[in-house]
Design a binder for these strands. Structure first.
Lengths: 229, 229
DNA sequence: GCAAAAGTGTTTCAGTTACACCCATGT
DNA sequence: ACATGGGTGTAACTGAAACACTTTTGC
């Protein structure tokens, strides 16, 4: 590799910020103020700066849009989009991320003045988005659904301390299924490193007090967390 | 996003070409002819051209180095490496790929005149490679090992027509385990879409003739293919 | 015949499912 | 008291592991 006559590109990080809010699986979209695609909805994103990695750029954008730092959420790379004509103005290679943030998220924590909206994922997928963002969104949603099976990513949708039923609801909403509460409880509590019990309980969901847990160090589940596999 | 004063970068595709050869899990490395890192081993790679995607660039490099087209192998994106100083000369953002090719691979099918070598993965990981290629190699190997569990990627290491025992040996070598031949046979033949039986058999491995199969359309396995999960 | 590899049968056993049931709170 | 959600017990079922055994070739 490495001989000079090679072209250069703008490199961008685009993020699909996902959350669970109001019992729905939602994505944060921005209404574009100027051409191209003025008035269309688009994913948040920004260009790579001189002193940062693409991961840093994604984290910076996430913070600007939501106020969440990487430690309070989960930021995963899901794809690279580099069709030569994907931006009509110039060559842009976008690295796409899925950010899983706790819900309900703050309405707005900073960033520029553009209109933003948390749309249910299914609606957003029907909407015509700017650039190739519909494709990116579809890939990121598929990635997130699959990763909930194999990894502990679901905890990123929960507040720092959460009950097992709250975690179960994440799976139920993202997968559009219903899970047996008792069996789910046993299954996840038995997996070592997934959940760390705290001493507290809560009654915020009504009924008998539920034990609160925090996310453990485990990243990959030893077996897929879906019924009837 | 999108205001002009953003820096541009060279974008490269680096590929970790993996195969099974001589009963070992091996990677293709190139000896660099010039500075920086002259004499060091490095991953094959090349810069993105004006009219191609990064995936195209990776496929082009794979073909130049091995003669394999994408259809005869499996090319998966595994990471993006963008530390500002990872190339001492200029800013380069590398998209890393793992290529799984059938073995034993052709010794050399084209490309430039540099020395190439198929090193056992464990040896290559100990070797000091050029740039951040040791890290890329480690990530790609981990990615490949994990993907053999969840996907049908293992068939990419086999010739077009292969026996179930040949497929089993792929798993045994990559995972450094031994698998029960009978149970493995039943397990993989029961998964719909994984293996397509042909009418032929072969005795190339000795013993009773073994049925030959080709890879089916399935990409993701319904359950992880590892013992004692 | 004998060795070697492919593939099948069978027992055992662990993990999951379905669902009944009990528990601890708020109102 | 009773409604509500949290959590446990348990019997039936399912599928994987272990391993013996049969099949079909080459020599």
């Amino acid at each position: 590799m490495v001989d000079d006559p090679a072209p250069t590109s703008y490199v961008a990080a685009d993020i699909v910020i996902l959350t669970i809010s109001g019992g729905e699986f939602r994505v944060l979209l921005i209404e574009r103020g100027k051409a191209p695609f003025a008035g269309r909805l688009a994913l948040p994103g920004g260009f790579l700066e001189d002193d940062e990695t693409v991961d840093d750029a994604a984290a910076r954008e996430l913070f600007e849009e939501t106020g969440f730092a990487v430690g309070e959420s989960l930021l995963e790379r899901v794809g690279v989009y580099s069709e030569p004509d994907r931006d009509p103005r110039r060559r842009v290679v976008s690295v796409a991320y899925a950010a899983l943030v706790p819900g309900p998220p703050p309405t707005r924590a900073g960033g520029d003045a553009a209109e933003t909206a948390w749309l249910p994922v299914d609606e957003a997928l029907k909407e015509p988005l700017a650039f190739d963002h519909s494709r990116i969104l579809g890939d990121a949603v598929a990635h997130a659904r699959r990763h909930l099976e194999y990894t502990t990513a679901a905890t990123a949708f929960c507040p720092k301390e959460f009950t097992i039923a709250e975690l179960r609801r994440v799976y139920e909403i993202v997968w559009r299924t219903s899970l047996d509460p008792g069996n789910f409880h046993r299954k996840v509590t038995r997996i070592e490193g997934f959940l760390v019990p705290t001493e507290e309980t809560t009654t915020r969901n009504g009924g008998r007090p539920a034990a609160l847990y925090t996310a453990g160090p485990l990243k990959w589940l030893p077996l897929p967390l879906s019924p009837a596999h």
